[in-house]
Design a binder for these strands. Structure first.
Lengths: 116, 116
DNA sequence: TCCATATTTCCAAAATTATGGAATTATTGG
DNA sequence: CCAATAATTCCATAATTTTGGAAATATGGA
């Protein structure tokens, strides 16, 4: 992933509604959610939600497909994976004391822990 | 890490100069770099760099200490680690097909690979 | 075809962020 | 104390982002 896309992706997630949308879509995988349903669940006007979805979409963080009258949005987990990889590479570069614990926490990961 | 700080951190990194500053500081660990040196190396006016550093600092991504006339900035790797952990938790939640490969690439990490 | 539903596009106002010269605040050396 | 160096703060301008009502576009069913 090149830095211009990294910036676009961080910028997309650096907004309350959009971060909430992305997190919600991750939890809805692999089904996704319709645009209107996202607007309703997050109490955001249609036009505003549409603008946010287009930002997330341009960044590559979500993908959409039409299904009847609705447009279903899904989180693009591969893209997120690439973004994380970018951060890890820069962050760990020569600093295994950071990388190590991260890797451990990934290995020991169990889906049940959901605390902040 | 709470979502407000996550947003602040992403927002801080979602800007060309600031992302460059952070990456440079990671490579300079653990010595850090003076504010003026950062401005010079990245060809940014002092006042502008100072504003960017204060954004990174407020987000917790960098820390600073005075040394004589200079103020030395360092990357806060622990903070970055927390930010990555947040992403991974949301991204992997119930999706080991994403989490697994990430963990592998962390385990198999060697500092020499530096491709984009 | 006509109507209801789902979304997006248009557009303009409000809010936030970025920029950088000039002034101000610290620190060190003579 | 004074001059030089290093940074930050002040402040105004420019640029970008966010917001959401109203209009336009697309789809499916009667």
């Amino acid at each position: 992933m090149e830095t211009s896309n990294v910036i676009e992706s961080f910028s997309a997630l650096a907004q309350e509604t959009r971060l909430a949308v992305f997190r919600l879509l991750v939890r809805q995988e692999p089904d996704g959610l319709a645009a209107g349903e996202l607007a309703r669940q997050l109490s955001v006007p249609h036009a505003t939600m549409s603008a946010h979805l287009s930002v997330l979409s341009r960044a590559g963080l979500v993908v959409s497909r039409r299904q009847g009258r609705s447009i279903i949005y899904r989180a693009n987990l591969n893209h997120m994976q690439e973004a994380i990889r970018f951060l890890v590479r820069d962050c760990c570069a020569g600093h295994p004391e950071v990388c190590g614990p991260l890797a451990e926490s990934l290995i020991g990961y169990t889906p049940n822990q959901d605390k902040e």
